[in-house]
């Protein structure tokens, strides 16, 4: 089949750490503008899979194809420029930097800018155009009033929103969000779900969402993929997947017990 049909295709991706098969032969596709949930219990290998897609880890086997380009062996920054954005489960904010600067880094990086001579000639001030786009993204995520505050002063929930805004500022074709709602309260989670839906509908960004909060996943995604101990358990629409007895056993059984 032609990979051009899909935005992101995983073909038999495997990754192990020593003896642990963290990701075992995972294959699925995400289409442009689609929203897919990636769910599974703790240690299922979701974050590891994200790392394989973004290039922080190199899978031992299998191919990752994005937008018609085979990504194997490509460094993280090049993948990002192709249009893969992500947020991190363990927040990775830039200490000591203001929220607006976080977005400026993304804004410039997307176009591969950052030449020293431009800085030395004082040609790197933010343009009106850039400022406008950054403000729009801040507005979208709802953190405009935090723009000039250093992230050091922010709590976990706000840091997650900053990460989301930063990823969106790079205007990715696909957004990989790793448990964006952990650390947020109920109201904030609902707002976050709304933001993700807006991003998908208005900007046409595909979303691959890892999330333990199933009600939020249900709100956001069109399809879901279920992983358990590295392997793919099921895939289909959210309701289909949740009706699958195997999935109930591996995942929901655990949730019921809690």
């Amino acid at each position: 089949m032609a990979d051009g049909d899909h935005l992101l295709s995983l073909r038999g991706v495997c990754k192990s750490f020593g003896g642990i098969q963290a990701v075992h032969s995972i294959s699925f596709d995400v289409d442009a503008g689609e929203s897919v949930g990636l769910v599974g219990p703790n240690g299922a290998g979701k974050t590891t899979l994200f790392n394989c897609v973004c290039g922080q880890l190199r899978p031992e086997e299998g191919d990752v194809v994005f937008d018609g380009t085979l990504l194997n062996g490509m460094p993280t920054y090049k993948r990002a420029r192709l249009g893969i954005g992500r947020t991190y489960q363990k927040v990775e904010v830039f200490t000591d930097m203001s929220v607006r600067d976080h977005l400026m880094v993304a804004e410039r990086a997307r176009r591969g800018e950052g030449r020293l001579w431009r800085d030395l000639c004082n040609m790197s001030n933010p343009t009106a155009d850039e400022k406008e786009r950054v403000d729009a993204t801040l507005e979208l995520v709802g953190i405009t009033q935090l723009a000039d505050i250093s992230v050091n002063a922010l709590g976990l929930g706000n840091c997650r929103l900053v990460e989301l805004a930063r990823a969106l500022a790079a205007e990715p074709k696909i957004l990989l969000a790793d448990e964006p709602s952990s650390g947020l309260d109920l109201r904030e989670t609902e707002e976050l779900a709304a933001v993700l839906r807006t991003v998908q509908r208005e900007r046409g960004t595909a979303v691959l969402l890892v999330e333990h909060d199933l009600s939020m996943v249900a709100q956001v995604v069109d399809r879901a993929v279920v992983m358990d101990v590295g392997a793919m358990l099921a895939a289909g629409t959210f309701d289909e997947v949740m009706a699958n007895p195997e999935v109930r056993n591996a995942y929901l059984g655990q949730v019921d017990a809690v």
């Binding site: 920054y77 990002a80 990775e92 880094v105 410039r108 591969g112 950052g114 790197s124």
Partner: peptide, 25 residues
């Protein structure tokens, strides 16, 4: 205050995330 300085400041905070945005560290 330029792009390189901002990128370097970002790298001090998190090199992973900076590379993840498209900056070549």
């Amino acid at each position: 205050k330029g792009t390189v300085g901002r990128n370097l400041a970002a790298m001090r905070g998190s090199e992973t995330a900076t590379a993840g945005l498209g900056v070549n560290p």
